[in-house]
């Protein structure tokens, strides 16, 4: 009795300790497993499918690159890519310019800054589907701006980009910049605010005016914000799906298709699984081409 009781306690202690040591791993592993399956497994599956002749149903017969060849000979894919190029460059550029401008203006000891900031940022809280509904209505030639301006006494005014195959993509840009520029503003404002006050004061003593202070001192300091804002915006633009659906539905025709809507259309409407998978793989590769170097430099930079 005297010898076994401590022994039992000791053993329980050891088991408890062992459990404690394994508990963190036990907790993490199912989550990690889920991510392995749902992220990496699914990516692998999609990649695999992109090399098969799958149509309406998955067909696991490998056919090499033929889906990719088909993809790259589909005119609609080129339209989507071209739109992506136009949309992403204008969207990123527009958001950066507007967001940065607003952040700098808001950084000037503004009364009611909080309220103004809230107004600039609220679209980010809304779904593209919701705001798209509003924009669709505003940009609608017979009901929106066009009619409004004509009513003001300019009967020849025309603003029908929404239904013009050549210009419809620009309406997506307008709605996108309106929605996301506040986000860039918030990022930049936080960056500007993090600059040490004493540096700004030193610049004032050195005689730099506002323009020079921003251009040569403050903006170079917040350079990391540029990078992360551009990365985030690029990411949004590649994934953009709901904005196009809500605003133009990809139309007129497929004039405003983006890779995201293209993929969806081929996967769920035209049931061309192999081709859809190939387009999804192209999207993934594009995103990775942007993200991986960024993450790499971020992680490396942090270690330094």
């Amino acid at each position: 009795m005297d010898r076994t009781a401590p022994e039992r306690i000791r053993r329980r202690f050891v088991i408890g300790n062992l459990l404690e040591r394994w508990l963190p791993k036990l907790v993490v592993s199912p989550l990690f497993a889920a991510s392995l399956v749902f992220v990496y497994g699914f990516i692998a599956w999609t990649i695999y499918i992109s090399f098969t002749k799958s149509g309406v149903l998955p067909d696991y017969t490998l056919v090499g690159l033929s889906q990719y060849l088909r993809l790259w000979s589909t005119p609609r894919w080129y339209v989507a890519l071209q739109n992506l190029l136009v949309f992403s460059s204008l969207f990123i550029g527009g958001c950066m310019i507007v967001g940065m401008l607003l952040a700098i203006l808001l950084d000037q000891r503004i009364r009611a800054e909080g309220a103004i900031r809230t107004i600039y940022l609220y679209p980010m809280a809304l779904s593209f589907i919701v705001t798209g509904t509003a924009w669709k209505w505003i940009l609608n030639p017979t009901l929106g701006i066009e009619t409004f301006v004509r009513g003001l006494g300019y009967p020849d005014f025309s603003f029908d980009w929404l239904v013009d195959p050549h210009f419809a993509i620009y309406t997506v840009v307008i709605a996108g910049v309106w929605q996301s520029s506040g986000y860039v503003m918030a990022l930049f404002l936080a960056g500007l605010r993090s600059v040490d006050d004493e540096i700004v004061r030193a610049a004032a003593i050195d005689g730099a005016g506002p323009v020079r202070t921003y251009a040569t001192i403050i903006l170079p300091i917040v350079r990391p914000v540029f990078l992360s804002a551009i990365i985030v915006l690029a990411h949004i633009s590649i994934k953009s799906y709901d904005l196009v659906v809500a605003l133009t539905g990809g139309g007129p025709g497929y004039a405003t298709d983006l890779p995201a809507t293209f993929m969806y259309a081929y996967a769920f409407q035209r049931s061309e699984l192999g081709l859809a998978a190939a387009s999804a793989v192209m999207m993934l590769m594009t995103v990775m081409a942007i993200i991986v170097p960024y993450l790499y430099s971020e992680l490396r930079g942090r270690r330094r």
Binding site: I205, A208, G209, P220
Partner: peptide, 25 residues
């Protein structure tokens, strides 16, 4: 001229650039 507690050096400029910034303006 002022020397600050945090030194307030311009982090993106070299030492040379820090010293000459006021003269440049």
């Amino acid at each position: 001229a002022m020397v600050f507690q945090s030194y307030a050096l311009y982090p993106t400029k070299s030492v040379h650039g820090n010293i000459t910034f006021g003269m440049e303006t």
